[in-house]
Nucleic acid binder design. Structure first.
Lengths: 367, 367
DNA sequence: GCTTTCCTGGAAAACGCTTTCCGAGACGCT
DNA sequence: AGCGTCTCGGAAAGCGTTTTCCAGGAAAGC
């Protein structure tokens, strides 16, 4: 109305009631207040259109209702879908979501965690591939330990080589399935387009793929690994370079759908028929994958579910005492530990997300 | 390290300095502090890994460094791109972004504004089409007036029929260009797939299109308007129904690219050649539009720029006194007021975003 | 009928920070 | 040398809540 905010004190005096009573009626809840006073307070609050000051509430010891979400970039469909799932659960719990975009910079990621720590967010979700850099792991580890020590919860989505609860897509398994499927189709000379190996996700997908290829009897001389950016542009460049190099393959596996989209564009520009001359397959099954022409074969991950599960993990009612104890009997995470990295505490909740091969029109037998 | 947070008081005592001095060194900035003390404080803060409590800072009168972003759904590419732009500017200003997904519910939109008000966010960005419902306009208007009255800034992205700063895409103009382009190509029987008219964006795009068609001499009997959901599914259903009805058109204009994607799928399933039998054109130029087959003709809006401009609008240094005065000489918004709704205060900053017709492969002459 | 227990409202103490106001030295001017 | 001015550190007053503790009245027990 006029300048400044309506405070609880104003509501209380308007209702001719003490501050304590007004607080109890509007936010407390535990204690009983005589109906008559209760109504007076409620009426006054409505009349003045009182909105509690979240900062004051947080300071005074009330629980904060915000969760931080740190990721590469919301406009990347992979992250957009995960965010969507996470926000659904957040909304159900009446929790506000704070976003941080790192654009794949480890420094920014750490900075955001520190910022969110300052905001006393109830929890932090670290979405997307972790970095393998030791300096990053040390710093981020310290930051997260401090956060947890002071009562914050956190969870990773995707592998991070750091202790903590996590939602883990079966990157290796999915990539291996791609390898076997391509071999089954008859491909023998195969290319992989990956990103920088400092990203865990890339390492697992490319690694799992190459290993499975070897296991299926494809000589490593017939496997071409191309490392570019982990982005649409990177996929474009990878495919372009592959074609320029004489296209030493009949199938191309891209470490993500986004890369595959870039690759598809390059292949179209260079006149390479997909899947006629080259089979193409991605990873993630982002929503547009099925709308491309040819419809993109890929490995489906339930991205929204990943977001949902992670948010549930950190919002799952903790015992209020904030001792650094981590996971508390999450029931449905089938805990097969594939030992991808053994340095995690066994108490941490782990949710595995299965990867499902989806063959659409972009893959076929070799020419 | 141990339970609980490190407070400024602890830092101060570790540095053998008063609270005031510690505050001045770490956050204040205005006042000068002797280098020796300054270093002591800095060292202590680092050693204890001090993180200021943002809530306490906000309460004590320091500026809040968060901005709210309220929109339909981040996983919609249109909103994802806008969000990306907004986050870039936010990051430059060291501002944190809080996200709210309304899923096109006016109630949720109002609820989020109220929540963000409670968070004392520095500003709120309302992204995406406003609703035409009078009840919504009244409530939202009151909420925003209260917010502004207490020093908050806000801006709309897209038309909202409410006073306030805004970043406005030229929906009518773009739609009119589509109409003229289709007529120029030779189309005479034309269909439009729109969403519910309670969305301003839909109203302007469909309205502008139909009017321009009339102006170009296309009899209204030859124009088919189909109203479905403003979503991919809605586009699918619209196209499906159109085909079922005997396809009384040689061109289909969809009120958004997302709808066009759905329509394209339906047309493919029903065996309708695009653009051979039916020309298709969307609106927005979301990033994947060019990757579809056929590459989607559309009206390009610089979505990231829209996000950027809006964020700049609300972050543009305000005079600290928070009197409800709104716009302060934004230099480069060319203020042509097309009078789409006359009830706004002239002081509000308005940034117009031009719409540019992009003809790709999904449009051609009629069969 | 008097004491003991509930029950409920109010006063006041945090919560962690910013900022205003003072006071004490240091310096410059006459 | 004396006085005024300037600089910079510290004490303390909030900021808007929650929550603990206390007091007074009503209900209950003997």
């Amino acid at each position: 109305m006029d300048g400044g905010y309506v405070t609880l004190a104003q509501v209380a005096s308007a209702a001719r009631v003490s501050l304590a009573t007004a607080s109890r009626v509007l936010n407390g809840g535990a204690r009983v207040v005589r109906p008559e006073l209760r109504d007076r307070v409620l009426a006054a609050a409505r009349r003045l259109s009182y909105v509690p000051n979240a900062h004051a509430q947080a300071l005074a010891g009330g629980a904060t209702a915000t969760v931080g979400l740190v990721m590469h970039d919301v406009s990347d469909p992979y992250f957009a879908s995960i965010t969507r799932g996470a926000m659904q659960v957040a909304a159900e719990h009446g929790v506000l979501v704070v976003l941080g975009s790192t654009f794949r910079s480890p420094e920014r990621e750490i900075e955001y965690v520190s910022l969110l720590r300052g905001q006393r967010t109830r929890a932090i979700l670290l979405v997307g591939s972790g970095f393998t850099d030791p300096g990053y792991l040390r710093e981020m580890g310290a930051e997260l330990a401090g956060y947890q020590g002071s009562g914050g919860r956190y969870a990773f989505i995707s592998h991070h080589d750091l202790p903590g609860a996590a939602v883990l897509p079966d990157n290796r398994g999915g990539a291996a399935e791609v390898a076997r499927a391509l071999v089954r189709l008859g491909h023998r000379r195969i290319a992989v387009a990956g990103g920088p190996p400092r990203l865990n996700t890339v390492e697992h997908r490319v690694g799992g793929f190459v290993e499975a290829l070897a296991a299926a009897g494809v000589p490593s001389a017939d496997v071409t690994v191309v490392e570019r950016e982990f982005s649409e542009e990177g996929g474009y460049v990878a495919a372009h370079d592959l074609v320029t190099a004489g296209l030493p393959a009949t199938a191309l596996f891209c470490a993500s759908d986004v890369m595959a989209i870039g690759a598809l564009l390059a292949l179209r520009e260079r006149g390479v028929a997909v899947p006629g001359r080259l089979s193409l397959i991605g990873f993630d099954d982002i929503p547009i994958a099925r709308h491309l022409t040819p419809a993109l074969s890929t490995v489906a991950l339930d991205l929204e579910e990943m977001g949902r599960r992670a948010m549930e993990l950190v919002l799952a009612c903790p015992r209020p005492g904030a001792d650094p104890d981590g996971g508390d009997g999450q029931d449905d995470g089938d805990d097969r530990d594939t030992g991808e990295s053994g340095d995690r505490e066994p108490e941490d909740s782990r949710v595995w997300i299965p990867a499902r091969l989806v063959l659409r029109d972009s893959t076929g037998p070799p020419p």
